[in-house]
Structure formats: structure tokens, C-alpha cells
Simulated assay, not measured.
Amino acid sequence: MVNTLPKPEIKTPSKETVLTPRFYTTDFETAAKLDLSAQETELQAMLTEMRTDYNRHHFVRDEAFEQSWEHIDGEARQAFIEYLERSCISEFSGFLLFKELSRKLKNRSPVLAEIFQMMARDEARHAGFLNKAMADFKLSLDLGTVTKTRTYTFFPIEWVLYTVYLSEKIGYWRYIIIFRHLEKHPENQFYPIFRYFESWCQDENRHGDIFKALLRSQPQLWNTWKSRLWSRFFLLSVFATHTLTVHERSGFYKSLGLDATEFDIQVVRNTNETAGRAFPVMLNTEHPKFFPRLQRCAGYNLKIAEIEGSYNPKLVKLIRKLPLIAAIVWNLLLIYLIKPIDTEALRGKVR
């Protein structure tokens, strides 16, 4: 008699909110017309590296996964499943965007098309690995259905370059910080996926470097007053989203032995410093009001979640939430108005 594992239940994806990972589409015609000549040498070198596919044998489950995970239960189990789902949707979102860019650019910009094809390959691996991890907890996402039912947000290609660059670099810092922490505290490594994070984060880093080259190939994205304003906006948007979501899931980070606030600060500071190599400005994270205002926004967001989970009528919920939403917007505006650091002026200097 052959024993077979029970088929995992198909999980209904979490409700889409402002903070959940989104699916994107863009202006493929404009993307095809991008002049990449200023960064052609760098992009060719990166394409050669991507063809090497250093991680092609990395995402293979070993015997450490072959056990029951029923001992991870209660809030810790739910928090980890939410982490896996959010990560899987985020990686799959990147796969869909890169795959479509590769398909649409194949005959117009073959080098760029192949780069996107290689990045789509990586993102598909990541999403599949995360979905298999969810199956260990008897749940799985039907990514085919998610593709058809998820809302797609249109971003101009310029916004895609800004946001995907930041997404990849913040992903790198998240993975490597967790990996290094668990190296020092193996007693908190409650599931084997974390052992894969060191090589995994190098995929994120390579993708980020590709988007840096794409961004720097377009002077209008870094040498104009508009580009400075957009850079500040996207940096703040990504950091605010990170701060709010990390504090929403503080229980997950606690299970890893991490303090959510300290983890968030470390990720934001490192990502901001890294972004200074690509963006014309970076945010002044050392300003005494920077992190306190971000953390204040996280507190307001938790109160909004409490109200949303109450049994009050929708109108009452809205009335109670409005002052908190206004407070978040106000604090983010005050952070935005903090004088940024001019990275172009620092370019070429030892930092």
C-alpha cells in the first residue's frame, strides 16, 4: 500500500489593501524605446552573470523539510503562514511583470528582454519555493487563479524602475539581516527555509543592480528637480509600507528572536544607504524626527486595524478611522519635508 501526503487546501488569498503586494502592468511601448547606451557595458555584464544562474541548484528542498510542522501552532503558525503568503505573492508579482516585459520587448530590445526573462526565472523559483513551504502547513495558493483575479495597477515604466529597484534592495536587506541573526541565534530558526536566505538574497541584490543600471541609463530619472521629488516620494512610500507591515506582524519577528522596531530601523537605514548609489537623493534617516514619526504611523495603523476588526457599522468605522488616516498622512508629509541628502554631490567621494 502506497502512502500519499494529503493534498494541501487551496488558500483564499488575503484581502487586497493599500499595504498588500500588488500586481503591476506598465507602458511596454515606452519600455521598448528606452535608450540603454549609457549603461550598455554594465547591462551586458549583468546579463552574462544572469545566464550563469548561480542559484539554479539552490532551491531544492532537503530532508530537513520532511517532518510534521504541527508543533508550530496558534498565533505563531498563523503569523508564519501570512509571512509566506505575502512573500509568495510579492515574488509572483515580480515574475508576472518581468515575464510580460520579456515577451513584449523580445523583438524591440532583445538584451533587455533576455534580462527580464532571467529575472522572471528567479522570481518564479522563489514563488514556487514559498508556495511549497505553505504546503507544509496544509495550505497552498492557486497562483493561476490569483493571476486572473488580482487587481493590476498601471505604473509608467519610470515608476517601475524606481519601485522595483527599491523592492529588490529592501528584499536583499530583509533576507540577509534575518539570515545573519539566525546564524548567531540558531535556536530561533524554527523552519529550514531561513537557511536558504543567504544565497536567495543575492538574487534580490543582482536584480536591484540591474534596475540601478536601467535607472542610471535614463538621466531624466536622476538629474532633474522632478527626479529628486519622485525619489523622495518612492523612498518614503516603500519605507512607510515596510514600517507599517513589520509592526502589523511583530509576532512573527518575535518568533525569530527579533524586535520588530529594531529590525525595521536596520532594514530602512541600510536600504536608504544603498539607494543613495542609484537615486539623486536619499532620506535623512538620522534626523531625530524620522523614525519616531514613522513608528507613530505604525501605531495609528494598528488602531485602524482594531477598528476594522470591530463589529461596528461601516459608517461608524469610517468616522473613527478618518482622524487616524489623517494623522498618518500628516506625519508622512512632515517626514517628506525633512531635507534629504544630495547623493549626486557625494558621488565619487569616499563615504
Rank of each mutant, 00 (worst) to 15 (best):
M282I: 10
K148S: 12
T25Y: 09
K314G: 11
A45K: 12
L47W: 05
L324T: 08
K15E: 15
Q220W: 10
S217G: 14
D203S: 08
L229M: 10
F137N: 00
G309R: 05
R296A: 14
W230L: 15
W222P: 01
E286L: 11
E248A: 11
L36Y: 13
G348P: 11
R216T: 06
T243A: 15
L97M: 12
L36I: 13
L84Y: 01
E16N: 10
A79M: 03
S231A: 15
M118K: 15
A326H: 08
H242E: 10
R174E: 14
E262W: 03
V60T: 12
V146S: 09
F137C: 00
K184D: 13
D264E: 14
E42Y: 08
A260Y: 01
A213D: 00
H207M: 09
T163I: 14
I328D: 03
F65Y: 10
I265C: 05
I325Y: 14
K15M: 12
Y83D: 06
W222V: 04
P6K: 12
Y191P: 00
R108W: 09
D62E: 08
Q295Y: 07
E91N: 03
R77K: 14
A64V: 01
S250K: 14
F239C: 07
N301P: 02
Q39F: 08
L294G: 08
L141T: 01
M118C: 12
V281S: 01
V316D: 08
E40T: 11
D259E: 15
S250T: 09
I307K: 04
L332G: 07
R61S: 09
E75R: 09
E85M: 03
S255R: 09
D136P: 00
L161H: 03
I157N: 01
L214R: 01
K349R: 12
P186I: 00
L143S: 05
R206P: 00
I177A: 07
T17S: 14
I178W: 02
M46H: 08
E29Q: 11
G257L: 07
I319A: 13
F154T: 12
R249Q: 08
R174Y: 05
L221F: 01
E204I: 11
F95L: 11
S14P: 11
A275F: 06
L84N: 04
F263D: 03
T151M: 06
T4H: 07
K138I: 03
L139C: 10
N223T: 06
I170N: 07
E16H: 07
L130H: 05
A240R: 15
K104Q: 14
N284W: 08
K148P: 06
Y54T: 10
K99P: 00
G128I: 01
V18D: 13
M1F: 03
Q189N: 14
L214G: 02
I319G: 05
N107V: 02
F239W: 05
I341V: 15
K99I: 05
L166C: 08
K148M: 14
P313V: 05
F233R: 15
P219V: 05
A345T: 13
V329Q: 10
E183A: 09
Q189V: 04
H71L: 10
D264L: 11
L337M: 13
L161D: 05
D122G: 03
K11P: 07
L141E: 00
I335R: 00
W159I: 07
